[in-house]
Design a protein around this nucleic acid. Structure first.
Lengths: 115, 115
DNA sequence: TAGCGAATTGAAGAATGTTGCAAGTCGTGA
DNA sequence: TCACGACTTGCAACATTCTTCAATTCGCTA
């Protein structure tokens, strides 16, 4: 192979690709099955070209695949485990946010006490 | 709460935070348990200040926590599920890379046939 | 309490990523 | 084969993120 990319770098790159609001929304929509661009566009209110750019990123990394169906283009998740990753992420996020809220509550309490 | 951040945006932000080579390496090292900065520094060959910057990012998002132990500062993973997320990511990545290699092999074959 | 090692912070410039618009491709039906 | 809808691509302006280096903080001990 040409470039022996270290694994940790590939991993970082992978997460970075997931780290964009539009791309995440696309992946979440695709969890329920294949969808034409037209529908994605209806759910995510952005310019067609902006969506296309982000779809191109997901495609370039092999996270989604696309095929033409007559006049429209249909996208779907490439691997079966992406959905699981998103679920795990959601769980962690819930934990983190809960933790932050507790912390926030504590801080508020301390603040009030200090007044 | 002050800002009603949409969930998909929080999720994207979370992935983006994971999407950095140094941060990923730190998280992988911390999977085996708490470690002082000094040790992280020994494993990841970068300047102390650069590591500190990235640790600060992880801390800011509540992904790791730090505490001072005498002369050194010890870091550890904040939530229990981060390790699982990393494992899932590794599995997906393995799939993706395998898929890409197969594709590459096909392309090479086709190329050779076309010559 | 002066000094040293360990780690963090601040700030500026460099590098990357994102957005928006204009132009281009590809099917399909008139 | 012209025209139109559905997408994609190229590119320049703009925004964010990273790196680097100097300055600073915090414990500890001589």
């Amino acid at each position: 192979m040409s470039a022996p990319v270290p694994l940790y770098q590939a991993k970082a790159e992978f997460f970075r690709v997931l780290g964009h609001p539009v791309r995440i929304r696309v992946l979440e929509l695709l969890q329920d099955g294949p969808r034409p661009v037209r529908e994605l566009l209806a759910d995510i209110a952005i310019e067609p070209s902006a969506l296309s750019q982000q779809l191109a990123v997901l495609r370039r990394y092999g996270i989604v695949v696309s095929r033409r169906e007559g006049p429209s283009v249909v996208y779907e998740l490439a691997g079966g485990d992406i959905a699981e990753l998103l679920r795990t992420a959601r769980r962690i996020l819930t934990e983190l946010i809960t933790g932050q809220n507790e912390l926030l509550a504590e801080l508020r309490g301390a603040e009030a006490a200090a007044q």
